[in-house]
Amino acid sequence: MTAFLLLVRRDLRLALRQGGDAAIVIAFFFLAVILFPLGVGPEPEILTHIAAGIVWVTALLAALLSLERLFLADYDDGSLEVLALMPLPLELQVLAKALAHWLTTGLPLTVMAPLLALLLHLDRAGYPMLVAGMALGTPILSLIGAIGAAVTLGARRGGVLLSLLVLPLYIPVLIFGVGAVEAQIIGVSARPHLLLLLALLLAAIPLAPVAAAAALRQAVE
């Protein structure tokens, strides 16, 4: 457990001291959301309808941004080979890295989402569900993203390839995340959507690290 926490702390420290991934992700999130009122027009009626969708879609894209760096720095400087030799199973290390990734991207995105939704005139009833959905959904993005990052390690144009591989797998999170907000706004229970997100999260926590660790072993072999 201490090794796990040490790894989380190391990754957090690296992320914070190496030039603020979180700040870039949030800045991208803001900018991308700002593009929509400019693109579809500033009428509040239109924006209200699509606010939840815009926030979720841009959050997905923002989460993609920092994924490539999840293992790349460690792979390039050789630390990944040392990590692979640690007594802590590689699966748990992946979990630790995904957790650190979530703390530096998913969590800030979740915190900023209501503010951006406010700018887009989201219906008042939707806010709790937006935050709840993001809180459950963004860890899934980090976990699935860890698979993509591990699989593309050492590939040519890895970053572009990573988005091509990971975005299709993000679709269920998007569907249920937006579904929860929409359900709450039209006055039906958002519970099923949140429970499905929770189910996805509970499935991703044990399964995604296994797949990512398998890919990492191939990379350091």
Binding site: V151, T152, G154, A155, R156, R157, G158, L161, L164, L165, L167, P168
Partner: peptide, 13 residues
């Protein structure tokens, strides 16, 4: 898109 991603990935190394 999964097929396309798979094909792109196997040729990317």
């Amino acid at each position: 898109f999964l097929y396309l991603g798979y094909i792109a990935l196997i040729h990317a190394f």
